[in-house]
Design a protein around this nucleic acid. Sequence first.
DNA 1: AGTGCCGGGCC
DNA 2: GGCCCGGCACT
Length: 346
Amino acid sequence: MTFLFYRKSSEELDMDKVTAAMVLTSLSTSPLVRSPPVRPNEGLSGSWKEGGGVPSSSSSSGYWSWSAPSDQSNPSTPSPPLSADSFKPYRSPAPPDDGIDESEVSNLLFDEPIPRKRKNSMKVMFKCLWKNCGKVLSTAAGIQKHIRTIHLGRVGDSDYSDGEEDFYYTEIKLNTDSVADGLSSLAPVSPSQSLASPPTFPIPESSRTETPCAKTETKLMTPLSRSAPTTLYLVHTDHAYQATPPMTIPGSAKFTPNGSSFSISWQSPPVTFTGIPVSPTHHHPVGTGEQRQHAHTVLSSPPRGTVSLRKPRGEGKKCRKVYGMENRDMWCTACRWKKACQRFID
DNA sequence: AGTGCCGGGCC
DNA sequence: GGCCCGGCACT
């Protein structure tokens, strides 16, 4: 889940700057502009910094229709199609100064009270909302500096911050947990947004804090899930109680009995950073005619050694359910022995 | 609470 | 090996 909000509370900022920035942002027609009403003010995590929204207390909508006078504090307030820098193609390597800024400043502000002890590791990144710039940095200082230097053109006093940068980036949260959510990926991916896709996450957290542009990472979402189940490896069926007299399902011994497929694809769209005001009807029309997705997304992560992540519980009827406890002798042997059912695979 | 079944015990 | 069950994950 990712939330959009500004990092600093509004009272730290000049109202003039606030409004100016808002107008600029809205005028830029950037798709990344988040509309205030959408702001998910209280979220599931509830762990962010309060005082989130910029015009939180006052009428928020007013700022958005406000036509900007020339702000005196920012004479050089850029109009979005500003410097040539902003036209950097996506995925372009970070400008060199960002790299160093990043590393040098990150020490200072890295203790930011971001929710670190999440149950599943969430990573907080900061995304530049400037038009045509999707830069994502891992530290607020880094993104502020990026905005200052690249977009606001404040090269000289690179360390001085008057807070305006805060309006050009947003905080995004990325979910990194890999396994353990074989189920959550099945869940109807709440319309609110995203557990951002793990594949985008090989970011080593310290050194390379800069991801190219999160929003075009739509690869990795290969639709190969339901196509190739049987080629999978080593779903060991060591149990040989296949002696079920009535009819033996051929080939059942070579794959996991309950026939759950095994894929490495991720169903959720990758990295939906939250700059966008995601409409509640995102996608995943789960409820409708969908054929009960079988593609359990299990991530084949080697590190999980001994614990034997259970396979996703075979669906369908099993002997016990079909015949009932009283007709136990009609069960397949596996069911009788409380093993994986061999009769009703799938 | 019900169910599927892994892990492990007993013979 | 066959057979059974405790106990846990999942629904």
